[in-house]
């Protein structure tokens, strides 16, 4: 009896410790980035684009990278949604439970998920060369969308799988088609989970450097069309960290802080939104 209690306590303590480590890591990262970046953070940093010699410590800001990253991640996430939702609905509503095709698709997503983003970058670059494109916002969006699709699909798949069979049957029994059931019942029931899946993919997309290096390129200007190259925050951080000047390296931390705050903000937004949509969800 005593031993069982001891075992129980031991494992519970271990769980609490792991939880503390996870939360601790998040706090540590956020605090480090903000603490190191705050001194360099200024209004001009988020409202101006780099002047000549910015990377040597001269004036300017990283508005080009902030906007570039937002355009890129929003575009890529939208494109990834357009690809992921149909696939996931197809797998869950139209395929049989043990269909070969569904299994193969899920397996592909798992593999694609594990492929490092530099490989996506290289793949995107090959595509660009094939189509005779230059580094551009569009090429970056396509590449990052490909990177996001497996992440988003798998996350949404897990949620849609949980829709009770009886709920679908209720809709079918009223004479709804599979498509109507998907769009009006399943998506509504899963909206909070779908939003979370989209958010996870967005976070991954906005934070990735390797996939945009060859595809979106880098520029000091703010892109005004899909055909122009675009700067991104991860690359801005990378370039600034790589300089020998301490004040520029400090700006790298400030940029990282901006990226982190952006992601935090979007996470909170998604939470709030998904809470608004849970009120109809059937448990």
């Amino acid at each position: 009896m005593n031993k069982r209690r001891l075992v129980e306590r031991f494992w519970k303590a271990l769980m609490i410790a792991s939880t503390a480590v996870v939360i601790g890591c998040l706090l540590f990262i956020v605090v480090t980035v903000i603490w190191k970046g705050l001194p360099a953070l200024s209004l001009s940093m988020i409202t101006r684009i780099p002047k000549g010699g910015y990377y040597l410590g001269k004036e300017g800001g990283i508005l080009n990278a902030i906007l570039g990253s937002l355009y890129l991640a929003l575009g890529a996430t939208a494109l990834a949604c357009v690809l992921s939702l149909p696939v996931v609905i197809f797998l869950n509503v139209y395929c049989r439970k043990r269909s070969r095709l569904a299994e193969l698709t899920r397996f592909s997503f798992d593999v694609l998920w594990g492929i490092p983003s530099i490989v996506y970058g290289a793949f995107g670059f090959v595509l660009m060369v094939y189509f005779g494109m230059r580094t551009s916002l569009l090429a970056g969006i396509v590449t990052v969308a490909l990177l996001e699709v497996p992440i988003m699909s798998r996350a949404i798949d897990e949620v849609i799988k949980l829709v009770p069979r009886e709920l679908k049957e209720a809709s079918y029994s009223l004479g709804a088609t599979r498509l109507e059931t998907s769009l009006k019942v399943i998506i509504r029931q899963c909206l909070p989970g779908i939003l979370t899946g989209i958010l996870i993919a967005f976070g991954r997309g906005i934070g990735d450097a390797a996939s945009v290096l060859f595809t979106a390129g880098f520029t000091d200007r703010i892109p005004t069309s899909l055909g122009q190259p675009a700067a991104t925050l991860p690359l801005a951080i990378f370039f600034q960290l790589g300089t020998p000047f301490p004040e520029v390296r400090q700006r790298a931390y400030a940029s990282a802080a901006i990226l982190t705050i952006l992601i935090l903000f979007i996470s909170v937004l998604a939470r709030v939104l998904s809470r608004r949509y849970t009120k109809h969800v059937i448990r």
Partner: peptide
């Protein structure tokens, strides 16, 4: 199916 209404064992309201 439109010709039939179904009541299931556990009531299944739609998420709306």
């Amino acid at each position: 199916r439109k010709k039939m209404g179904l009541l299931s064992q556990k009531p299944q309201v739609l998420p709306m």
